[in-house]
């Protein structure tokens, strides 16, 4: 995976999330989409395992530096999402919108679970309604965002996984 393309993706997606996140909230719970998570899923679904896990950890760490959440929280959350997504690489059709919706929903729930557990242990408590709403919202946007990122897949030069047989 080309590091230049990776860093540009991280910079752009976190910048866009910082800029527009508060203006796209919906519902009484204030749910908002997690565009950074979709970038993690994009990396994890295409990159080799090692690069995907490190890449997801790095994206989470950079996001942690721009939030009130403690340093390391989203590094853990996105690493778990990447582990799950990497395990499905051989099982799913990577470009299919249904795959994107399911991974977006499941990934958001994984990340949200980490945030909820942290809020329960250390505080402040997070809102389950907001986490679930965000998961739905992210899943709905996943085909659009991941579809657009797939068009730029060539810039990342993902290495193909070698088949065992």
């Amino acid at each position: 995976m080309r590091l230049t393309a990776y860093f540009i993706l991280v910079y752009l997606v976190i910048g866009v999330q910082i800029g527009m996140g508060d203006f796209v909230r919906v519902g009484s719970s204030g749910a908002r989409p997690d565009l950074v998570l979709l970038a993690v899923i994009f990396i994890a679904i295409h990159a080799p395992r090692d690069a995907a896990l490190l890449g997801a950890f790095g994206i989470g760490l950079v996001k942690d530096m721009t939030t009130l959440s403690p340093l390391g929280l989203y590094a853990i959350a996105y690493s778990l999402v990447a582990m799950f997504t990497v395990s499905t690489q051989e099982l799913v059709y990577r470009a299919h919108p249904v795959t994107h919706v399911m991974l977006g929903f499941a990934g958001s729930l994984f990340a949200g679970a980490v945030v909820l557990i942290h809020g329960w242990i250390k505080g402040p408590p997070a809102s389950f309604a907001e986490v679930f709403g965000s998961a739905l919202y992210t899943a709905l946007l996943a085909p659009v965002i991941l579809g657009a990122l797939n068009l730029a897949k060539g810039a990342f030069s993902f290495r193909r996984r070698q088949r065992a047989f």
Partner: peptide, 22 residues
């Protein structure tokens, strides 16, 4: 860990125009 943070303004070239449009 807060000593390791404080680089938010690096994202300003992307976040500010995005915020204005949004």
């Amino acid at each position: 860990t807060n000593r390791l943070r404080g680089f938010q303004a690096i994202f300003a070239p992307v976040s500010r125009p995005t915020r204005a449009v949004a």
